[in-house]
Design a protein around this nucleic acid. Sequence first.
DNA 1: ATGACAATCAGAGATTGA
Length: 259
Amino acid sequence: MKIATFNINGVKARFETLVQWLQDSAPDVALLQEIKSVDEAFPRDEIEALGYQVETHGQKSFNGVAILSKLPLEDVVRGLPGDDDDEQARWIEATVIGKTALRICGLYLPNGNPAPGPKYLYKLAWMERLHARAIELLAAEEPFLMAGDYNVIPQDEDAATPEVWHSDALAMPQTRQAFRQLLNLGFTEAFRAQTQGPEHYSFWDYQAGAWQRNNGIRIDHFLLSPECADLMTKCEIQAEMRGREKPSDHVPVWLELDN
DNA sequence: ATGACAATCAGAGATTGA
């Protein structure tokens, strides 16, 4: 099974790119972030016509996540549990019904800048809720994964210019600590389980020729439960997408499971 | 020190992103 996570930076602006990518790369499951669309405005019919079940959790203008799947999806949960007052659409869960059931969570973790400040506090609080939800899901001791735009640069090697990010919400010590605390529950960070070393990025800013200079950061991740990690055969970043026409500033990250 | 770039909503320019 081929699963991809992709922050598309607006489904309206990225529609042609998205359709082309689905046709070319044919993920079995695609987790999308920043659809920037309400559910009613998502191009559901067009995506369904490509053979996908479509489950969205959208909002107006910002954020918004979706799961597209060629296999049936069940038990969809919209919104990260733990705060009924949180109106930002950043979390969606579903169970993919294949040979064996796989619980999949798509997430768009808050950016948190400027830090310190209320937006950073929201990021840290969101990560605490993510930690709590992860404990609940791990308790099932079944294959499950959480993937998406974490807005976390885990280590200095995950940025082309690490010193620039040390006081940024994506890489501050508290951010990295919260991410480690998540990993320490028993997750495998799929990409680093397969590939070491610098110059592996999933985001390049639109500004200042960041792509041409390969001035990127790696912030889109797959976290796998132990039972899911056992099934992993491959994890790769589809960097070439950043060089296409009308690219998102993020590129897809792929996970292949032997399931 | 600032802006560079893109998307959204709205219908100009502010806001958000990372």
